[in-house]
Amino acid sequence: MNFGVIRFPGSCDETDALLAARRVGDARLLWHTDRDLTGIDAIIIPGGFSYGDYLRVGAIARFSPVMAEVERFAGHGGLVLGICNGFQVLCEAGLLPGALLPNTSLRFTCRQVELEVTKSRSRWTSACEPSELLSIPAKHQAGRYWAPDPVLDEIEEGGQVALRYVPGNNFNGSSRDIAGVCNRAGNVMGLMPHPEHAVDELTGSADGLKLFESALAMALA
C-alpha cells in the first residue's frame, strides 16, 4: 500500500507522518504543487502551520494545486486523513463538516489525551473496536471543533463522529467532545490529535498505529 504525505511550506509533522505510514506500508512525500497522485492509495495531510497560518488556519493551503487533486481523489472514494492542520485544511476545503476555532484557553496546548472510538462510518478507525480507548497526543492552538447544532445532530446521527475526547480530556472546548469526524462516505477523516506521534511505545504510546492499520485493511479489502 502507498501513502502520500503532503508537504506544504510550513508543514511540521510530515516526516513523522511518513515514518508512521511506513510502519504499515510504503509512503512518499507529495509537494504542494504536485498534480500527479498516480499510485497513491491513501493521502495524509499532516500537521503544522501551512503557509504560516497567518490568515485563518488552513485557509491558504486549501487553495494549493495539490488540494484540487486531493478533492478529486476523495470524490472517487480515495482514503484521505487530515491530522491537526490537515483537519483544518479539510474543513476549509469543505471535504469535512464544521470548523476548528481557537482553543477556549487561547493558548497552544500539548498534552496526551484519551480518546474513545465511536461507532462510525470512518474507514480510518475500522480496525478499532467500538468504545476502544486510544491514548494519543494533541498539540494545537486552534482545535476547538465547532459546527451549528443542526449539523452536529446530523453528523452524530449519520455516523460521522469517529472519535471523542474522554471526559476530562477535551482541553480545547470542542463541541460535544468531538475529536475526529469523517465525511458521509467514511473515506475522508480529520482529527486534531496526532496518531502519527503514537506509533511507538518508547515515545509514549502505539495506539495511533490503529488508524494506519485501518487504512491498510481497507486498501487490501
Binding site: T15, D16, R107, T109, C110, R111, H197, T203
Partner: peptide
C-alpha cells in the same frame, strides 16, 4: 509552561 510547547514533533522524544 511546557504544555505550551510542542514536545514531540520529530518522533524522537522518549522522556518529556
Amino acid at each position: 509552561v511546557y504544555e505550551q510547547y510542542d514536545q514531540i514533533v520529530g518522533s524522537r522524544t522518549v522522556r518529556r
